[in-house]
């Protein structure tokens, strides 16, 4: 048995960008890339790639990574290939940059249809830029397939069923569905593997398939936003931190306890 897996992955601003380097262009209402800090593949999408590669090992799978956007950095987007994915498809078009969740879902769903046969669509639980956690749900709705979110474990059974452990804050749910299906993956699934040297060399030789918006049958009018961004700004914290010192670190620890008692917090 071998299944076709499509992993949706997004290129995002590195969420580890230090707060001091995090800048917003408030007129354009967008986050400015920090100088010298390249974008990354959304972390949860890497968890989804990891889930796909685990299935490739256990049941056999062909793994296609799909991304929709523009301004792709090829070294960044090739990382899933170097981890072991088979092919990369980029819908690279200014028309599909900065879409809202609805339009993103539309573009991803149309791309998946164009790819043809698929059994499983995997997505990260949410993207670390807009934290919407919505586009995957839209893809499932538009493709008319079952949807399971927040996977920490995915098993494919011989009869074409899948069993998913869905991470909750106090445990997990076990959910069953039949393929084709869409599953979103959470970090509890496990750390994504590091690319091997061989993987990096193989990935280097692979050329991504690049489509435009019209290749997936979409025009600007199909992608008009339903949600409008009115304002984007960096929050200001009004808290002043009282730093507790001492003769040395141990003394500072003692003083901290005393100060907390004085403030009636302990």
């Amino acid at each position: 048995m071998s299944i076709n897996i499509v992993v949706c992955a997004k290129q995002v601003v590195d969420p580890e960008t230090p707060a001091s380097a995090f800048r917003i262009d408030s007129d354009a209402k967008r986050v400015l890339p920090a100088a010298g800090i390249p974008p990354v593949v959304n972390g949860f999408d890497e968890n989804a790639v990891e889930a796909a590669l685990q299935l490739k090992e256990t049941v056999g799978a062909s793994v296609t990574v799909l991304s929709v956007g523009s301004g792709f950095v090829m070294d960044v987007m090739k990382k899933p290939l170097s981890m072991g994915a088979d092919q990369l498809v980029l819908v690279d078009d200014p028309l599909v940059a900065d879409l809202d969740s609805f339009a993103t879902a539309r573009a991803l769903a149309e791309s998946v249809k164009k790819l043809g046969e698929f059994d499983l669509v995997l997505c990260g639980r949410q993207a670390s830029d807009w934290d919407n956690a919505m586009a995957p749900l839209g893809v499932a709705e538009m493709l008319g397939i079952p949807c399971v979110t927040l996977a920490q474990k995915i098993e494919v059974e011989d009869d074409g069923g899948i069993v998913v452990q869905r991470a909750l804050t106090d445990g997990y749910e076990v959910v069953r569905a039949t393929l084709p299906a869409l599953v979103t993956v959470s970090n509890e699934l496990g750390e994504p593997r590091y690319p091997t040297l061989r993987g990096i060399m193989t990935a280097g030789r692979k050329r991504p398939t690049v489509w435009s918006a019209s290749d997936i049958g979409l025009r600007a009018s199909d992608l008009a936003p339903k949600l409008l961004l009115e304002d984007l700004f960096v929050p200001v914290s009004d808290r002043q931190c009282e730093l507790i010192g001492g003769e040395d670190d141990a003394d500072a620890g003692r003083n901290l306890a005393l100060r907390l008692r004085e403030a009636r917090l302990i």
Binding site: F22, S128, W130, L228, L229, E230, V234, P235
Partner: peptide, 11 residues
């Protein structure tokens, strides 16, 4: 948004 690094207002 951005994990709390930014605040957005939407309509």
């Amino acid at each position: 948004v951005y994990g709390g690094s930014a605040i957005s207002r939407v309509s």
